[in-house]
Design a protein around this nucleic acid. Structure first.
Lengths: 85, 85
DNA sequence: CTAATATTTAGACATTCTTCTAATTATCGA
DNA sequence: TCGATAATTAGAAGAATGTCTAAATATTAG
C-alpha cells in the first residue's frame, strides 16, 4: 500500500492515470501530454507499474499502458476503510 | 489537493490519522505511539494541518489534534471520482 | 543485416523530505 | 513570579525524489 500512496503523491503521475482513464496509450502518446523527457516519463511509468496501478502490453514497436482497474478498485476500498469505519 | 496526497504519502502521517480516528489526542499522547522525537512529530502534524486533514485546539497546557472529518469525506469523494467515472 | 523508431537504463545533479539537536514560546502549579 | 512541562521553530545532515543527457535495448522496415 505504501507504494500506491507514494505513486499518487506526484501530480504528474496522477495526471498520467487520468489520461489512461480514457483508454490504453503507448508511451509516445502519453508523452504528448507532458513537457518532460521520455526518460522522465519512463521513470514515472515505472513507479506506477511497481505500485500495480498500471499494466503494460507490447504491441510491435510500441508498449501500451493501461489502468489496472481491479487494483484501482482495491485502492479505493482501502481508502474508504482508511478514512471511515 | 496536492497537499493532501503529499500528506498521505508518508506512512507515519497515515498512522497518525488512524490513531486520531479513535478520538482527539494531545501531541504528547500521539507521541507515545512513535519512536521519533517531538520535533519530528510536530513537523508531521504541521503537514497534516496544512493539508486540512486535522484541526487543533489548545486546552490549557496541551494542544489537542483531531481529524477534520468533513475534509476527510471530501477527500474520499475526490478519490472516488479520481479513480472511477 | 542495417538504419530508424520506441522505450528503458545508467549516472548525475538540484531540490525536497525526514529526521535530529538545540533553542524558543506558552501555560500551569507552587 | 519561577520552575517545570508541552509544543513549536530553527538550522543542519543524510536520504529520497524528479529531472536531465547519454547510452543501451527492442522491434520494425527496407
Amino acid at each position: 500500500m505504501d507504494s500506491v500512496f507514494k505513486a499518487l503523491s506526484d501530480p504528474h503521475r496522477r495526471d498520467i492515470l487520468k489520461i489512461l482513464k480514457k483508454g490504453d496509450l503507448s508511451v509516445g502518446e502519453i508523452a504528448t501530454h507532458f513537457d518532460f523527457t521520455g526518460a522522465t516519463l519512463s521513470h514515472h511509468l515505472d513507479i506506477l507499474k511497481r505500485a500495480n496501478l498500471v499494466v503494460t502490453e507490447r504491441r510491435g514497436q510500441f508498449i501500451f499502458y493501461s489502468l489496472n482497474t481491479s487494483v484501482l478498485e482495491d485502492v479505493l476500498l482501502s481508502f474508504s476503510s482508511f478514512f471511515s469505519q
